[in-house]
């Protein structure tokens, strides 16, 4: 029953996302596939994973789970329902202050989801980007997952315009057209250092920032 309601609400969220953003998925050097993947994207809004989810073919949605902050998605009954029953999110406790305090085993929780065969949506910046920079420095999580799961494809994703739909502090969206661009998958190279890999992943994402395809 909850599952059915969850699916219906998920469908409504997709319709709403399409109405507000007319979102279009652009696949550049990659095709939609049921192969196991980690989609890593820029994070500017709470709606980011909804847009990625909307642009994925329906049959891939159920096996593609967003990685999200537990404190946000457990904050109310409504969010708990959406987080668990609609998107089946992989919830991670954020470490408390000080920021380098030992948090729970985030990589372990994500690995568990990967081992059960699911794909993940991940925001390697770790938190929403409210700076004027297009992309903040990455956290190390993506590297550690790439080490632990070399067989999983790492797919760079660029979400364009969603920050303009609902800037921080506003609650009524302005409908404008958004795009979600998927790029060619990456793998960790043999012996590649953390910093080199993260720089490569970051560059792959920034490379997708083409708002207009060539005529």
């Amino acid at each position: 029953m909850r599952g059915m309601i969850g699916q219906a609400v998920g469908w409504m969220i997709v319709v709403l996302a399409r109405l507000i953003t007319a979102v279009r998925g652009i696949w550049m050097g990659i095709e939609p596939s049921s192969r196991q993947r980690i989609y890593f994207a820029n994070h500017v809004s709470h709606g980011d994973f909804v847009l990625i989810w909307t642009t994925l073919p329906t049959h891939l949605r159920r096996r593609t789970r967003p990685v999200a902050a537990a404190d946000y998605w457990n904050a109310s009954g409504m969010r708990r329902f959406i987080g668990r029953d609609v998107f089946d999110a992989v919830l991670i406790e954020r470490p408390k202050v000080p920021p380098d305090a030992k948090g729970p085993d985030a990589i372990g929780i994500m690995s568990q989801a990967l081992e059960s065969g699911d794909s993940l949506i991940l925001f390697p910046e770790g938190t929403r980007n409210t700076t004027p920079e297009p992309l903040m420095p990455f956290k190390s999580g993506l590297f550690r997952l790439a080490q632990a799961h070399p067989e999983v494809e790492l797919v760079p994703v660029w979400i364009e315009n969603l920050n303009r739909v609902l800037p921080k502090g506003e609650f009524v969206p302005v409908p404008i057209i958004c795009t979600v661009t998927f790029g060619a998958p990456l793998h960790l190279k043999h012996g590649e250092e953390k910093d080199a890999f993260l720089a490569r992943a970051r560059a792959a994402m920034l490379n997708l920032r083409v708002t207009e395809e060539p005529a």
């Binding site: 303009r164 506003e170 009524v172 302005v174 409908p175």
Partner: peptide
């Protein structure tokens, strides 16, 4: 209107 607004230079103050 959605297409037109997409191409404008709006800022948060126009929200």
């Amino acid at each position: 209107l959605r297409e037109f607004t997409t191409l404008t230079n709006f800022r948060q103050a126009d929200h």
